[in-house]
């Protein structure tokens, strides 16, 4: 899922400073699962914003709403009656959701309440880690299901660097060396022959260097 982190409260407060009535819009997708932009977080942020503004004697009216997903036009239609009632929308979705909202509602400013941080998963409740860098050319088949692009600090493809010490990365003793994990796993699986296979230089155009990406299922195009 896409992981997000709420922006500092002061920054959010400043964004909506000129407005008297806004909508705080949550997203029921990834950011609900990672506890940063769902129904509960909308209520918490709205409460905080109202209190902060009330304290300064500058009251703020908020419409609290959460939709299924903000990265999908059909769900964005659900707020079409509400958006004209507010001066601005504070979106608690990831960067994609914020942009879809802004594209759908041209006449209303849309602001992000989150910093979109990475694609990952939860090791346990409330604890999220990066696992994918969306490079566009998955190497997991060769690396025992452990991604060297996302998890090696240098994104090395053919074995560890000299900074790997006791299974940890030189950037931080708490960060596992991805290549140590890969070699341990390939050894356990009896698949160390994969390690002998040299991976070619990456064509980073499929990552981000080729500009914005798209994916089209032709059979769905009408």
């Amino acid at each position: 899922m896409v992981i997000g982190k709420r922006k500092p409260f002061e920054e959010i407060l400043k964004m909506i400073e000129p407005y008297k009535k806004i909508m705080v819009l949550g997203c029921g997708g990834c950011v609900t699962v990672c506890l940063t932009g769902g129904h509960d977080e909308v209520r918490v942020l709205s409460s905080q914003l109202r209190m902060a503004r009330d304290k300064d004697g500058n009251q703020l009216e908020i419409i609290e709403k959460t939709i299924e997903r903000q990265c999908d036009p059909e769900y964005l239609d659900q707020v079409q009656d509400l958006v004209p009632q507010v001066e601005a929308v504070l979106s608690m979705a990831c960067g994609a959701g914020v942009q879809f909202m802004a594209e759908r509602y041209q006449a209303t400013p849309v602001f992000p309440a989150l910093d979109t941080t990475f694609v990952g998963g939860s090791l346990k409740e409330g604890y999220y880690v990066e696992r994918c860098q969306t490079c566009g050319q998955c190497k997991l088949a060769y690396t025992g299901g452990i991604c060297p692009i996302a998890r090696c600090s240098k994104s090395l493809l053919n074995g560890p660097c000299g900074g790997s010490t006791n299974g940890k990365c030189e950037i931080d003793p708490e960060v596992d060396c991805a290549w140590q994990l890969i070699i341990d796993r390939l050894t356990n699986l009896g698949m160390m022959d994969k390690y002998e296979q040299i991976l070619d230089i990456v064509d980073w155009r499929t990552n981000r260097d080729g500009g914005p990406r798209k994916m089209i299922r032709e059979d769905f195009q009408r």
């Binding site: 409460s47 109202r50 009330d54």
Partner: peptide
Amino acid sequence: VTPVFLLRAFE
């Protein structure tokens, strides 16, 4: 209790 309960009480 959730943060929402507590914040709403203050609010």
